[in-house]
């Protein structure tokens, strides 16, 4: 059975100006490689569709068995003027856990 990221990772998300910042942490070091293989600019772009207008960057953080996903122009403005209910993208980030866990 195919696993999702929700089985192997935790998420903490927030805003940074008009960008959305999502930290993804492997629940255990043995899952780190899968997290890195699964969370890519391409998979993240396909997931969120037109809610992300800008560039997507993924920065590996091997020191904490995780990565940081930075999605630019992704909040429909900034927390102070977006039409989104989730003004600071705290909810938006957990959608990353919907991604399939891909073997490295």
């Amino acid at each position: 059975m195919t696993r999702s990221l929700v089985d192997i990772a935790y998420v903490r998300a927030g805003d940074k100006g008009d960008s959305v910042s999502v930290g993804v942490l492997a629940k255990s070091p043995e899952y780190y490689a899968q997290v890195i293989a699964s969370v890519t600019p391409k998979t993240v772009a396909a997931l969120y569709g037109d809610w992300i207008q800008g560039k997507i960057e993924v920065f590996p953080m091997p020191n904490i068995d995780g990565c940081l996903v930075l999605m630019h122009d992704a909040l429909g403005g900034s927390a102070t003027n977006t039409l989104r209910f989730d003004q600071t993208a705290k909810s938006l980030g957990t959608a990353i856990l919907r991604l399939s866990a891909i073997a490295p």
Partner: peptide, 13 residues
């Protein structure tokens, strides 16, 4: 602690 290290940041480097 790790969750907060990655909170509301840009390029972690």
């Amino acid at each position: 602690v790790k969750e907060h290290l990655v909170y509301e940041i840009g390029d972690p480097r």
